[in-house]
Amino acid sequence: MSQRESAERRTSKPSQTEEAAQTPAESAATTDLDSDIDSILDEIDSVLEENAEDFVKSFVQKGGQ
């Protein structure tokens, strides 16, 4: 399984028919998970260094052990 495939498998949202087939509890759990993921990504947006390209490019280290 490639990374891309595994990403799709994990993050693909259920289709409408699948959603209809879910019990209310399952649906609520999925919504909680989605909102939890959304909120951590929002948080990361807020703490991530502002200019990602500059930040990455300027992170230059001297070799160590």
């Binding site: 990374q3 994990r10 993921i37 990602a52």
Partner: peptide
């Protein structure tokens, strides 16, 4: 870390070369 990167990629449709993903790796 991979889980986080995949979630970020899925939300923003980012390619693996995106600087923001590299920034996440560092941060």
């Amino acid at each position: 870390k991979l889980a986080l990167l995949e979630e970020y990629r899925a939300r923003d449709g980012l390619d693996w070369s995106a600087h923001r993903l590299q920034a996440i790796d560092l941060q």
